[in-house]
Design a binder for these strands. Structure first.
Lengths: 212, 212, 212, 212
DNA sequence: TATGAATGAGAATTCATTCAT
DNA sequence: GATGAATGAATTCTCATTCAT
C-alpha cells in the first residue's frame, strides 16, 4: 500500500484550506465531477496555487485520505483505547459500550462529508480500499477484539461467535442509521439522532428475534 | 419524481448491449469518470450509436436506474410477497425468513455492479435518492411490514419495536456483509457466502449481547 | 459555371417533396444549420430516401437553385417580355411599368423563402453568385435594357444614364421594401403591400429631391 | 431585447483577436459552417482560449454584434449628427447630403465583413433583427428625420412623403450599390466607387423617370 | 510564493452518408 | 425503390496542468 505516506503532516495554511474546500466539493459532486477551478474558488486561492501543494488532482484525494485516516485513527481508535482502559472501574461495560458507540456515531456524523468522499472512491479503487482497511478497519478491529475479549469475560458480549462477526453487525447497524439520516431524512421523518440510536442499540444488542 | 418513466421497456438489442456495457463501465469507474467511447467499445457499437438510443450520457444512467428499479422491484419485492403467501402451511416462519433473506442476499450479490452505480449516484443526487426510495425502499418496507405483522403474531419477531427498526437492522447487516465480500474479500479471507450468511443471520436475530 | 445543369427537370414526386421541405428548412435555419433528418421529417420520407435523389446535402441546394432559376427565369423574365410585347397598344408605358413592377414585387414576395436560401448562399459562394448572375440577373438586365430603350424613346424613362443604373435603383428600392416587410414588419408597422408599393414607386420614379 | 449588454467593452487583446478572426471566418463561411478550430487558427490562439473569452460559439457572434452596433452606432449615427450641426453655415445642404452619404458608403464598405455576418444572422434570428433595429436602424432613422426636416425646410428634400420613405430609398440604393460592388464586381466591371456613387446619387435624388 | 491566462488533450455530441433488409 | 439503423469523422466544449509574470 503505497498510496499513503503519513509522514510530514506539517500542513501549510493554504494547503489546509485547499483540502477543506476539496472535501466540500468532492463530497457534493464526487471526485470526477468536481473541478479544480471550483475548489480554488472555495478555497479562496488561485487555481495554480493548488498545484503548488498537490502535484495532481488525484493527490488532493490522497491528501484527504491521509487526513481522514489521521483523524479517524486518532479519534476513533486511540481515544477508544483510552476509554476502555480508563473506564474499568467506575462504569459497567454495558454503559461503556453504549457511550462508546454513541460517541462513534457522533464522530462519523461530524466527518460525514469526508467519509462520503472516501467511501465513494473506495468503491472504485482497490488502493483506496487497501489504505482504508490497513489504517482504519484493521486497527479498529484490533481494538474491538481486545474490547470484545474483556466484554465476553464479563458476560456482556457473546463469545460463541468471532469478534469480527459482532464487529460487522455493529458497523452495519451504525452505517445504515447514518445513511438513513444523511440521505433519506426527508423520506423517513426520523426522530433525533439520540432516540434513533437507542433503538438501534437495542436491536444491535438483542437482535430482531422475539425472546422466549 | 420525474426521473423515471417505466413505460416502454421494449428494449432493442443494441440498447440492451449499451446498457450492459454502461453498467460495467460505470460500475468500474463511476459515472463521471466513465467515457462514452469506452462504453461504445464494450458494447461493440460505434460511439454515435449510443446517442441514437440515449440522448445524453446522463440518460444512460437513467436507463440503468429504470432497469435496476424494474428488476429489483420485480424480483426483490414482488416475488417476496409470493413467497410469503405460498409458504404459510408447510414451512415455519423462521425457516421462511431465513430462506427469504438468503435469496435476497444472492440477488443483491448478483446485481451488485448495477447496485454500485445506483448507490454512488444516489449519494450525490436527490432525484436518484427519491426514485430509489419510492420504487424500492418504500415498497420493500411495505412488504416487510406485512410480513413482520405475521411474524410478530407467531412470536418469531419482536413486536416491541417498529418494523422500520427491524428492517433497518436487516438491511444494515446484509449490506455490510455484501460490502465486505465485494470490497474487502482479499483482506478478510471470508468463508463462503453460505456460512457467512449463517453467522450474519444469527447475529441479526439474536444480537451481539450475551444471553442470560 | 458548372453548378447548374438545367436539363432533365423531370421531377419525381418525392424529389419535389424533398426540395420543398428543404426550402422550408434551409429558409428557416440556413443551409449549414439545417439537418437532413429534419428535411426528411418535413418531406415525409425516410432520411435515406433523400440520398437516392440527391447525392449530397449540397446537391439539394443545387436543386433548389436550379428550380429557383427555372421559376424566376420563366416567370420573372419570360413573362415580362410577353407583357412588354403585348401591352404596346392599349396601355401607356407608365402604367405598364407600374403593373410590371407590382407583379414582380408580388412574385418575389411569394418566393421569398426560396429567395432567402439563394441569397444567403450567394453571400458566401462565388459559384452560386455566378449562377444567379448568369441565369437571372443578366437575363433580366437584357430584358430591362430593351424595355428601357422603348421607355426612353417614349420619354418615360431617363436616357441620360445607362439602363444598368436605373435597373439598380429599381432592384434596390424593391429589395429594401421586401426586406422591410419580411424582416421588420413588427418594428415598422407598415401599411399593406399595395400602398407601400405606391410610395416606393413614387420615390423610385421621381427621386427624393424636391422638384423645382 | 436581451441579446446585448453594451457595458464592459474593455476588450482584452486576445479577445479582440478572436473577434477579428471570427469576423473573417464567419464572413467567409457563415456562422454555422465556421468552426472554432479555424477561428482559433486564424486568431493564433489555442482552441480552448476561445472559450475563456466566450462561453459558447454563439457568444462570439453576440460579441461581433455588440462591436458592430457600437462601431456603427458611434460612427454612423453620432458623427452624422455632428456633421449636420457643424455644416450649417459654410456649405449648402445639397453638398452636405452628398458628403454625408458618400462617407456612409465608405464606412459600410469598410465594415462589410462585419455587416455580412450580421445580415446573415438577422435573416434567421428575430433577436438579432431586434437588436439591429433598436440599436442601428431606429437611431439612424431618428437622425435622418431631423435632417430631413431641415432639408425639407430648405426645399432640398421632398416633404410630400414621410421621411421613412425617403430613408428607405436611400438605404435601398446604397445597399444595392455595395452589394453589387462586393458580390458582382467581376460580372459588372463597375467603375470606381466614386463615380458609381455619383450616378447612384443622381438616381436617388431625381428618380428614374424622365423629367418634363 | 502566488497568480491566472493559456494550453491542448480528450470528452460528449451531432449529422451527413451508407447499406442491409 | 424505400427504409432507418448504424456509422465515425468532425465539432463544440471542458478542465487539469503549465508557466511567464
Amino acid at each position: 500500500m503505497e498510496i499513503i505516506d503519513l509522514s510530514g503532516l506539517n500542513l501549510h495554511e493554504k494547503e489546509q484550506r485547499i483540502l477543506e474546500a476539496s472535501i466540500k466539493v468532492f463530497s457534493e459532486k464526487g471526485f470526477s465531477a468536481a473541478t479544480t477551478s471550483e475548489i480554488a474558488k472555495n478555497a479562496g486561492v488561485a487555481e495554480g496555487t493548488i498545484f503548488r501543494y498537490f502535484k495532481t488532482k488525484k493527490d488532493i484525494l490522497r491528501g484527504i485520505l491521509i487526513q481522514t485516516i489521521n483523524l479517524v485513527g486518532e479519534k476513533l481508535v486511540i481515544e477508544q483505547v483510552e476509554k476502555i482502559l480508563l473506564d474499568n472501574a467506575d462504569k459497567d461495560l454495558h454503559t461503556t459500550l453504549k457511550e462508546l458507540l454513541y460517541d462513534r456515531l457522533k464522530l462519523v456524523d461530524s466527518i460525514f462529508p469526508m467519509a462520503r468522499v472516501i467511501i465513494t472512491e473506495a468503491l472504485f479503487h482497490e488502493d483506496v480500499r487497501e489504505a482504508v482497511f490497513e489504517h482504519i478497519i484493521a486497527k479498529a478491529l484490533n481494538v474491538f477484539s481486545l474490547f470484545h475479549q474483556r466484554m465476553a469475560e464479563k458476560g456482556v458480549l457473546r463469545n460463541d461467535l468471532e469478534p469480527e462477526i459482532l464487529f460487522r453487525s455493529i458497523i452495519g447497524n451504525m452505517a445504515i442509521l447514518i445513511a438513513q439520516k444523511k440521505m433519506f431524512n426527508d423520506q423517513f421523518k426520523l426522530a433525533d439522532l439520540d432516540s434513533e440510536f437507542e433503538k438501534m442499540f437495542d436491536v444491535l444488542l438483542y437482535g430482531i428475534a422475539k425472546r422466549d
